[in-house]
Design a binder for these strands. Structure first.
Length: 682
DNA sequence: GCAAGGTC
């Protein structure tokens, strides 16, 4: 393994740039059984000799350079790469990495970019090599996993830098910068031109479609009008326990009442079908970051970003593998039995591991999932025991990860599901299900997945079940759900925007900007969020759509294939942006500045909505205009189903919790003024 | 100050 030794590599060595310290160490260990571990200005690096060549392997810490500009105002098309520590206050740590690399470069004769083999890794390495002035003669190591075999193969056939890949990566940065910085500045300058106030506003290829998604859910929820329907519910006794079941539902109360009367008269339901089937539920896949965020939210109530932060800390403590991964696979190069043996030494896992070894007869195989990641395996514990300094939440997340890893190797769970269909003559049927655990398998370890058992006794076709009581209940259609932070991150993943490392962070950013807020764990758009989304959709619709990402991906792929040049792609983007930005500047800045000022409460609109005080276009603001339209539309159906009067209808809407906020406000307003809107008086 | 992307 690694040994400390004489930390002088002499002259004439090859300097290898890795993406991060963990990767540098892995590369060193792959090339040598005894790499020499050294430090320079607090930065670790390694010296190895392989096949007669001396290598000095030094890590970056992700990007050490970022795009910046000296120009103010918009449109802005001039930018350059600068050391990240100088342009981003949260990246101060990158300075020492850059300094260490520069010092170690002095006596190097050859240079290798050994960052992750993807477009970001190509850019990270290229920017460093260019700062050293050696990019023209540098080489690229291409490996898809940090295993001894892959790394050695890559170093035995080092290639010239992949310029098409580098240019695709540079283009991604420049496109995001051009679109994001310019539109963000257009928003901020609009507000400043009207109010003189400076406030941080932003837009971007990933954040803006995400904002629009959250906003459109908020709008749908706020404009929801529930509809009534009527259910017939019967109470029966099954296996000595009373169970309520819904027999039928109707749009008209009178029909429901007729059916209820009939059922009371009959007094029983008939078993039309009873079936049992055995279900084998395979063990879960090991975690990728997205799955971990979903489960930590469901089980522990953690937000996605909080989960990510805790997981990164567990990783830095050496307790779990790299968390920013999309992989659901544990490759054969990972010694799972060594990890399991290490876990057995943690008292709290001894019994679980013993159960696992018994249940599998010691043959450990992970149920790998379909999702892959070129650079990293699925998240798994290293086996290292947690030390006493960890917080309770670190330990809870660690426990979730350990159990998921162990469960992924355990036998399937075996359940018996029972389904009972009951009917009464001429009344349709009602079904009821039960579940019994035959063999818990992996659910013994990952116990959060265990269903609560509901036993149904075995029954026979034609058997009569006594009905103890029958009632008719009024129910209402349910409103669309608002997003949670977790579902928003999942939505981003499903649309292919952002990356494992950035999605949760970008959701938090939308909160920081004051565009979104949380209410009981649900994500609501704020006034500012509604307004910014609306402005972007009107003036810069491209940036609000996930299609922009698709377009970028196609362009980057064309650059990577050498079909089109980076310069051509960037000039086209500049030309397009120059057009829409100068038109915006001439025609729309004032109107947009006013809208922003209204939403921030900095200015009072000339004509206000009598319900909410927002700017009124006609009689009301656009939201309450829409709410009243919805109220009118739904009244016809309410009247048909219930015969309700206009006033009773409005009272009902104003009182119900499932009514959308803007609909409720509009109903209250109409009630207070004692008016039934046109079309609602019939 | 503003993006999105790496990682401490």
């Amino acid at each position: 393994m690694v040994r400390a030794g004489y930390c002088s590599a002499g002259f004439g060595y090859t300097l290898v740039i890795a993406e991060k310290p963990k990767a540098a160490r892995k590369i060193a260990e792959a090339l040598s059984d005894k790499p020499i571990a050294c430090k320079l200005g607090g930065i670790p690096y390694w010296i190895v000799t392989w096949m007669g060549t001396r290598y000095v392997i030094v890590p970056a810490a992700g990007h050490l350079f970022g795009l910046t500009t000296d120009k103010h105002g918009f449109p802005v098309f001039e930018y350059y790469w600068a050391p990240l520590w100088a342009v981003d206050s949260s990246s101060a740590h990158t300075r020492r990495f850059l300094e260490a690399i520069k010092k170690l470069a002095r006596h190097a004769v050859r240079f290798v970019n050994a960052c992750d083999y993807d477009i970001e890794g190509s850019v990270i390495g290229y920017n460093i090599l260019r700062a050293l002035g050696v990019e023209k003669r540098a080489l690229r190591a291409k490996f898809s996993a940090l295993t001894r075999q892959d790394v050695r193969r890559a170093f035995s056939r080092l290639e010239r830098l992949d310029w098409d890949m580098i240019n695709a990566g540079l283009a991604r940065h420049e496109l995001d910068w051009l679109w994001g910085i310019n539109i963000s500045r257009a928003l901020m300058e609009s507000l400043r031109s009207v109010t003189g106030r400076s406030k941080v506003l932003s837009a971007g290829r990933v954040q803006s479609p995400t904002l629009v998604e959250a906003v459109s859910r908020t709008i749908k929820r706020n404009l929801f009008v529930p509809l009534p329907y009527f259910t017939v519910t019967a109470t029966v006794e099954l296996g000595g326990k009373a169970r309520r079941l819904q027999v039928a539902s109707f749009e008209l109360r009178s029909e429901a009442q007729r059916v209820a009367r009939q059922l009371r008269a009959t007094g029983y339901l008939v078993v039309r079908e009873y079936s049992e089937y055995v279900e084998r539920i395979p063990p879960p896949y090991p975690f990728n970051l997205g799955d971990l965020q979903v489960e930590a939210s469901r089980i522990l109530g953690f937000s996605p970003y909080y989960t990510q932060k805790l997981a990164e800390e567990l990783y830095l403590e050496g307790l779990i593998s790299y968390p920013r991964t999309n992989s659901q696979k544990i490759p054969p190069t990972i010694d799972i039995s060594a990890i399991v043996q290490a876990l057995v030494r943690q008292t709290r896992y001894r019994e679980l591991v013993e159960y696992l070894l018994r249940a599998t007869r010691g043959v450990l195989r992970v149920n790998n999932g379909p999702k892959e990641d070129p650079a990293h395996p699925a998240i798994h514990p290293t086996g290292e025991p947690p030390h006493s300094g960890l917080s309770k939440n670190h330990l809870r997340l660690y426990d979730l990860i350990v159990r998921r890893f162990l469960a992924s190797m355990a036998p399937p769970a075996v359940l018996v599901r029972a389904r009972l269909i009951l009917s009464a003559e001429g009344l349709g049927s009602a079904s009821i299900t039960g579940v019994r655990i035959v063999s818990p398998g992996w659910m013994q370890i990952y116990y959060w997945a265990k269903p609560s058992e509901e036993y149904i006794p075995r029954l026979y076709r034609g058997q009569r079940i006594q009905v103890k009581s029958v009632s008719v209940q009024t129910s209402y259609t349910q409103p669309p759900e608002l997003h949670t932070k977790t579902s928003l991150v999942k939505w981003m993943e499903s649309k292919g925007i952002g990356t494992e490392a950035t999605r949760a962070r970008i959701v938090e950013l939308l909160f920081e900007r004051g565009y979104l807020r949380s209410e009981g764990g649900r994500v609501q758009a704020t006034e500012l969020g509604l307004t910014v989304a609306n402005i972007l959709q009107t003036y810069f619709p491209d940036i609000t759509s996930v299609e922009l990402t698709r377009r970028f991906e196609e362009l980057l792929e064309a650059i990577r294939m050498g079909k089109v040049s980076k310069d051509a792609v960037i000039s086209e983007a500049r030309r397009f942006l120059a057009g829409i930005l100068s038109e915006f500047k001439v025609k729309s800045m004032h109107a947009v500045g006013m809208e922003l000022a209204y939403s921030l409460g900095l200015l009072k609109p000339p004509r206000q909505c009598p319900i909410c005080g927002r700017r009124a276009e006609g009689e009301y603001c656009s939201y309450h205009e829409a709410a009243i339209r919805k109220i009118v539309e739904a009244y016809h159906e309410w009247r048909r189903r219930t015969g309700i009067t206009c006033r009773e209808y409005l009272e009902k809407l104003a009182a119900m919790r499932s009514t959308g906020k803007w609909v409720r406000e509009a109903a209250k307003y109409l009630l207070a003024r004692n008016v039934c809107p046109k079309g609602l008086t019939a």
